[in-house]
Amino acid sequence: MYELMQVSQNSYYIQSPAKIGLYKCNDTDVCLIDSGNDKDAGRKVRQLLDANGWHLTAIYNTHSNADHIGGNKYLQAQTGCRIYAPGIECGFTRHPVLEPAFLYGGYPCKDLRHKFLMAQESSAEPLTREALPAGWELIPLPGHFFSMVGFRTPENVVYLADCLSSRETLDKYQIGFIYDVAAYLDTLEKVKTMQAAMFVPAHAAATEDIAPLAQYNIDKVQEIAGKILELCSTPQSFEELLQKLFAHYGLTMNFEQYVLVGSTVKSYLSWLKDTGRLTVQFADNRLLWQRT
């Protein structure tokens, strides 16, 4: 873990729970794509930088999930690097309590205010194309989170952040986190047609051909949507539906899974209602979902 993997002359990634991209701007200066999940990850990254005689100039965050910005504060304090985050993700990076608050839908209790869901705050600036290294392309990848982006380096290496998961992860956890299902599917369709010398997803193996994995993720979304519609053949409250989905997929309920899977299921419900496949009714002061 935290092994430095070279993809091309200047493009690398650091093998970690959420892959960290690294790009050599010149012989001494490097920048990172994301920073890992906590201070310890940041420390291991700094050790790699020091061992290679590299100076960190900037961190480009793909989005503001805690496992991608957790090393920000430590690395910025150690190196003075600048941090950039796209769109609304910049606000979440500056005020990371927004992540568990958004997921829970209210003030998060202590069980949710920990490094898995809430990174330390860091001083981030809005990510613009002008802030990127020369020759980089900014790739919008909405769906998984609000304003998530990826990057293409001049060597045609594409860093894909969390826009798809590995087959192993999907087979184990089944319901991967999604904020906007329609945007997520559009992103996957776009990714499926991309060409690159190498693709580096944060939670799947680097590959030259991303299309089969993109399709596997699309199929899983459609499968889950179908299961929700099946369960909603009779009116279901959100809690009833969530319990049945956990039982069907063999998932174990805890605070983290309740907010992550629960938020995702609500996103599916919104998408299915907006596309006319679900309707709602209010009965006995309960909101009930039913297949159209």
Rank of each mutant, 00 (worst) to 15 (best):
G262A: 12
L241Y: 03
L251C: 00
L229Q: 05
Q243C: 13
E230P: 00
Y268G: 08
T275M: 02
E240K: 15
M253H: 07
T252R: 07
Q257F: 04
Q243F: 13
E223R: 01
W271S: 11
W271V: 08
K220N: 12
V265M: 05
L251A: 05
D219T: 03
T279M: 07
L245Y: 01
F238D: 07
G226S: 03
A214I: 14
S270D: 09
V265D: 04
S263M: 13
N254R: 06
S267W: 03
T279E: 05
T279K: 12
S267C: 08
G250A: 08
T279I: 08
V261L: 14
T264S: 08
G276P: 02
V221M: 13
T234K: 14
V280T: 15
W271F: 13
W271I: 05
L213G: 04
L269D: 08
L213F: 06
K273M: 07
L260S: 12
Y268M: 08
Q243S: 15
L269M: 11
A211Y: 03
L272M: 10
L213K: 10
E223F: 00
E208N: 15
Q215N: 09
G276F: 01
W271G: 03
S263Y: 14
K227R: 07
Y268T: 11
E208P: 11
L245W: 00
L245G: 01
I210C: 06
L269H: 10
L242R: 05
M253N: 13
S270E: 07
W271T: 11
D219K: 05
L272S: 08
K220H: 07
S233P: 00
E230H: 11
I210E: 08
P212W: 07
A225L: 01
I218L: 12
L241T: 03
M253V: 14
V259F: 06
K266L: 13
T264L: 07
L231V: 07
S263G: 14
V221Y: 08
V221Q: 11
L245M: 10
L231F: 14
T252L: 04
N254P: 01
V261C: 14
I224P: 00
S233F: 04
T207L: 02
A247W: 06
N254E: 06
I218Y: 04
G226L: 02
V261H: 12
L269R: 10
T264P: 02
L278I: 07
L260F: 08
G250P: 03
S237K: 04
D209T: 15
T279N: 06
Q257H: 06
L245C: 02
V221I: 15
C232I: 04
Q243Y: 12
P235A: 10
Q222C: 05
T234E: 11
C232S: 02
Y216N: 01
V261P: 01
A247K: 13
Q215G: 04
V221H: 09
L272D: 05
V261A: 12
A211E: 10
R277D: 00
L245F: 01
S270K: 12
Y249I: 09
T279F: 01
